[in-house]
Design a protein around this nucleic acid. Structure first.
Lengths: 358, 358
DNA sequence: CACAATGGATAAATCGATTTTTCACTATTG
DNA sequence: CAATAGTGAAAAATCGATTTATCCATTGTG
C-alpha cells in the first residue's frame, strides 16, 4: 500500500540545515524573515526547503515560543445555522492570522463547557472565544478568570467585568419587532423563550415590552419560558393555547421556539398569518421558501465573529484596559408570517393562496 | 486585572517531580500507569499532582511520541444540520479515545480542501476524516495518498483503492423513493442535483431509475443538474418549468435543491402536494413543522460517524488490509409533501386545510 | 562470600523547533 | 600595528514531556 511505503519521516529543520550547509538556527532565521543572514546562505536555505518540501512543524514551533498559535472556540452546538456560520467565520479569521482554531461544542451543558475549557487550557491556547451555554457568569467564565486565560465571550452575554463581550443587539431588535407587531394592531402577544441567562432574556423582554407599551399602553404581553430545554416550552405553549388564550402574534426568542410555535399552530390547525402572526429570533435559510415565509431577526454573524476575533487578538497581543461590551445591530426581516389581527379567514379576510413572487 | 496576575506559568512535570522528591521520569510513569513504581512514591506523585493542579501538556506530550493524538475532520461546510451533526459526533468519538479533533471547513472548494489537508499534515495528525467536496478522486485524496496519511473518506464517495470509505446508501434510498413515488402513480418525475462527483450522482440516479422503470416502464424521468453551484440549478429548474413541463413530482438529491424546488413552487403559485409532490435527500428539523411537512431521506449520521471513526482508529493502530467501502442504510420519511398526481384542486380533489396532528 | 539477577529509580537522549550565547572573522580607528 | 567595533553564523539552552540507558541496592544462588 502507498499508505505505508510513503510513511517516511518528514524532513526536520536539521535536514534542511545540513542540505544547505548551515546550522538549524540559520534556517530558522531565514524562515522567520530575519535579515541578518547573508543572501547567499539565505538562498541555499530556500533551495533546500524547496528541494525537501520542508514545512515547519507547528507543534514543535509552538513548544518553544511563549504564546501558542492556537485559539479555541466553544459553541453550545454546531447543528444550527447560526453557530455553524459562526465557527466558519472564526475559523477563517484565525487562519488569516496564522492561528489554528480548535472548535468544540458544549452541547448545551455547562459541565461539559468547563471540561472543554480545561482541555483548551491544557493546550495552552492563546485565547478562547466562548459562547456560553447560559450566560457570562457560568463556571466556564469563572474557570477562565481564575486561570488567567484570555478570551472573549459572545452571544448569550451582556457584559462582564473581566472579559470583552460581543453580542447581537437583541434589545433593539426586540423593540423593532414590537414596533412591527403593535404597529399592525396586535394587542395580545405572547413571547416564548428559554431563560438561558436571566439578564439577556430579561433584556430582550424589556426591550420588547417598553417599546410595545410606549406605542400602545393597552397591549397585553404574555411570557412563556422554560428553564432548561425546549420540550417543557412546547408543553407550556400547548397548555397556554389549551386554556383558551388567543394571542394574535407570537414572538419567539430562539430558533427552536419558532419551530415549536409552528408545530403547535399545525396541531391546532391555525394558519399563519391569518389566524396568528409569528416572528422568530434567528433567521434560517428555509424561512424564506416556506408558505408563509417566516419573519425573522437576523443576527450579524460576520460582525460578531469579526469583532470578537479582533478583540481577542488585541488582548493576546497584550492590550490592557477595562473590558468592552459590544452590541452589534440586527436586521429584522419582515415576511409573510406577520399580518394584521382580524384579517384572517375566520373574520372574513385573508386568502391562503400565496401570490407569485415578484 | 485578574486576567493578568493569574497568568503565572503552569507547573511542569519537573515541578511535580521536585515536590514529590522523585524524578520527572517517575512522574511520567505514574501518570502513564506503569506498575514498576513503589506504591509509596506513586502516592507522593499523586499528592503532588493534586496539590499543584498539574495536568499534562498535550502538546509537549505529543512531541515525543510517534503518533500524535490529534485527528482532523474536513467538511464541505458547517452550516447544514448534516455536517453540523457529523462534526459533533466525530468530536465526541475522538474525545472518547483521548484524541483532540481539529475540524475545518473546505467551503466547497477543492483548493482549500487541499490546503487544509496540508496544514493538518504539518500538524502530523494521526488521521483524517475527509468529506470531500467532489468525490474520492480529488486533489485532497491524492495528497493524502502521496504523503502517506491515514484517513477515511465519507459522504460523497463510493469506494477508493487506498482509503476506507463510509457513506449513506443513497442508491437504496433512491430506489425506495422511486417506489414511493411510482407507487402513488407518478409518471413524470424530475430529479434535481449537483454533479458533485460523477459516480455518486450517477449511482443515485441509476438507483432511482432502475426501480422506477421496473415498477412502471412508461414513467418519464427528467434530470436537471448543475456542475458547480446551486444558482445555476435554480435557473435550470425555472427554465424547465417555463418551457411548460409539468412533472408531478420532484426528487431533490440535496438539501439546497429542496429549498430551490420549494421556492420555485412558490414563484409559480404551485401548492405542494396538490400540484406537485416533493421528496428531498437530507432531512432537517424544520421539514416536519411546515405545511406541508416535507418528505425526506434521513442519513444515518451517527452510524456514518461511528463507522468512520472506528475504521480510522483501526488504521491508526496499524491495521493492514485492503480498504473497505461501507454503505449505511438511510431511512425514508414519508410526509405530506408527497401525494398522488391528479388529486390536487386543479383536478377537483385535495384540501389545503391541514388536519390536526394526531 | 562472590557473582548474577532483579526491582526501582535516575540521568540522559530525544522530539523539532526557537532563542540566547558564544565565537570567529573582518573592518575601523587611534 | 594593536585594540575595538561590528557581522554573520554556529553552538548551546530551552520548551515539557517520553523513552532509553544506566546505575545502585537488594536478594538469590552456587
Amino acid at each position: 500500500m502507498a499508505q505505508h511505503e510513503a510513511q517516511q519521516r518528514r524532513p526536520s529543520i536539521h535536514d534542511v540545515a545540513s542540505h544547505a550547509g548551515v546550522s538549524a538556527a540559520t534556517v530558522s532565521k531565514v524562515l522567520a524573515g530575519v535579515t541578518t543572514v547573508k543572501p547567499e546562505n539565505a538562498q541555499r536555505v530556500i533551495d533546500a526547503v524547496e528541494l525537501l518540501g520542508y514545512r515547519v512543524d507547528p507543534l514543535a514551533s509552538d513548544m518553544r515560543r511563549a504564546k501558542r498559535r492556537i485559539v479555541g472556540a466553544i459553541m453550545p452546538e454546531f447543528e444550527s445555522e447560526f453557530f455553524g456560520q459562526m465557527v466558519t467565520e472564526l475559523e477563517g479569521l484565525a487562519e488569516q492570522r496564522g492561528y489554528t482554531l480548535v472548535a468544540a461544542s458544549s452541547r448545551e451543558s455547562e459541565a461539559r463547557e468547563k471540561e472543554i475549557l480545561a482541555r483548551m487550557h491544557d493546550w495552552r491556547v492563546a485565547g478562547v472565544v466562548l459562547a456560553p451555554v447560559r450566560n457570562e457568569h457560568g463556571p466556564a467564565a469563572d474557570f477562565m478568570k481564575t486561570n488567567g486565560m484570555t478570551g472573549v465571550l459572545i452571544d448569550r452575554v451582556l457584559s462582564d467585568d473581566a472579559f470583552d463581550t460581543v453580542s447581537a443587539d437583541s434589545v433593539a431588535a426586540s423593540a423593532e419587532v414590537a414596533k412591527m407587531l403593535v404597529g399592525r394592531g396586535h394587542k395580545h402577544i405572547v413571547i416564548i423563550g428559554l431563560a438561558e441567562g436571566a439578564a439577556t432574556v430579561r433584556a430582550r423582554l424589556d426591550g420588547f415590552r417598553a417599546q410595545a407599551l410606549a406605542l400602545d399602553p393597552s397591549v397585553r404581553i404574555d411570557v412563556i419560558t422554560s428553564e432548561v430545554s425546549v420540550e417543557p416550552l412546547r408543553t407550556s405553549l400547548r397548555d397556554y393555547f389549551a386554556k383558551g388564550e388567543r394571542p394574535t402574534a407570537v414572538y419567539s426568542l430562539l430558533l427552536k421556539g419558532t419551530l415549536v410555535a409552528l408545530s403547535e399552530f399545525r396541531r391546532r390547525g391555525w394558519h399563519c398569518p391569518d389566524d396568528i402572526s409569528l416572528v422568530g429570533f434567528d433567521d434560517a435559510e428555509w424561512m424564506q421558501v416556506t408558505w408563509p415565509a417566516i419573519a425573522a431577526v437576523v443576527q450579524p454573524v460576520r460582525r460578531i465573529a469579526g469583532e470578537a476575533m479582533s478583540l481577542l487578538f488585541r488582548r493576546i497581543d497584550g492590550a490592557e484596559g477595562p473590558p468592552t461590551a459590544r452590541l452589534e445591530p440586527c436586521q429584522v426581516l419582515m415576511r409573510e408570517s406577520v399580518g394584521s389581527p382580524g384579517s384572517g379567514p375566520h373574520s372574513g379576510g385573508g386568502d391562503r393562496q400565496q401570490p407569485p413572487l415578484s
